[in-house]
Amino acid sequence: MTLSVALGPDTQESTQTGTVTSTDVLTAPDIPWNLVIWNDPVNLMSYVSYVFRSYFGYSEAKANKLMLEVHKKGRSIVAHGSKEQVEQHAVAMHGYGLWATVEKATGGSGGAGSGKGKGKRG
């Protein structure tokens, strides 16, 4: 797995100024769960990429990078957040037919920004 390649928007915000609200300070370290997508021989690469773009709102480049990571490495962390957030994403991914699990973050292995799910679920 590659080390973190892109800082999520949350990380940038919390280091921007000294005037962040106390809630931000409290929630920033409190992001201990990952959403993992696993490779399978059925799901189309185009479809996986489409789901990453339309559900998480990721750019084409980011969606393709994560999709290729799933394909080549067998799995990829595509979002992180609170347990409730990643569980909600997992159900949405299962709705799309992607094989998703959640796991506690061990730190330093994140390859994705925090998933800002648009909640476009069927």
């Binding site: 569980e87 997992a90 037919g97 094989w99 998703a100 699990t101 959640v102 796991e103």
Partner: peptide, 10 residues
């Protein structure tokens, strides 16, 4: 099981 997978591997 593939349509309704487990949410945790472990």
């Amino acid at each position: 099981r593939r349509l309704l997978p487990n949410v945790s591997k472990t």
